[in-house]
Structure formats: structure tokens, C-alpha cells
């Protein structure tokens, strides 16, 4: 059976969360178990809601040059995914 490419595969090398994150029904931010986790609650109370502006925050590109998130995420649909090596 063919598998789809998870956008976030890099972040979860071998981690249990990889499987959990891809379970059907987990897309609304529910973590382990039936209800929202503390992480879900923190996320949904902190992160701008639907229709609100993306945070005006400066990060860097892979050369270390400044990049403004709001600027790069304006003008087209944009997907932003957090991740790391572990």
C-alpha cells in the first residue's frame, strides 16, 4: 500500500509522536487520549486564532539572513511547520 508524504517527517525521526500525529482524527490538535492535552490548551490559547494575523516575528534563512515571517507569509497561501532533528 502506498504511503503519503508527511510534511513533518523530518521532525520526528523514530519518535512515537510521528505515529500519533498521523492518526485520523488528530488533526484538530488533539494529542494522546480522547481530549485536548495541556500542550493543545497552551497552543490554542497562545497562537493567533483563525482570521488573525500571523505573528510579526523575525527568523533567519539557512544562511542566517533575517526573514520576517509575516512578510513571507503574505501574498499567497503559506504552510509553516515547526520542526527539529529530534
Amino acid at each position: 500500500m502506498k504511503r503519503l508524504i508527511p510534511l513533518s517527517i523530518f521532525v520526528l525521526f523514530g519518535a512515537v509522536n510521528s505515529a500519533i500525529a498521523q492518526l485520523p482524527g488528530m488533526g484538530m490538535g488533539m494529542g494522546m487520549g480522547a481530549g485536548p492535552t495541556a500542550m493543545d490548551e497552551r497552543f490554542y490559547s497562545t497562537v493567533p486564532g483563525i482570521g488573525e494575523l500571523v505573528p510579526d516575528i523575525q527568523v533567519v534563512n539557512d544562511r542566517g539572513d533575517p526573514v520576517n515571517i509575516r512578510e513571507v507569509a503574505t501574498g499567497q497561501y503559506t504552510v509553516l511547520v515547526l520542526g527539529c532533528l529530534t
Binding site: M28, G31, I50, G51
Partner: peptide
């Protein structure tokens, strides 16, 4: 520049 969707864990199907 407005949030159209958000989720705690990246979810390819969603």
C-alpha cells in the same frame, strides 16, 4: 497574512 488553519501537531491528511 491571516491564520487559515492551525494545529498542535502537523497532520498531513488534515
Amino acid at each position: 497574512g491571516r491564520v487559515a488553519a492551525r494545529r498542535t501537531w502537523s497532520d498531513p491528511e488534515a
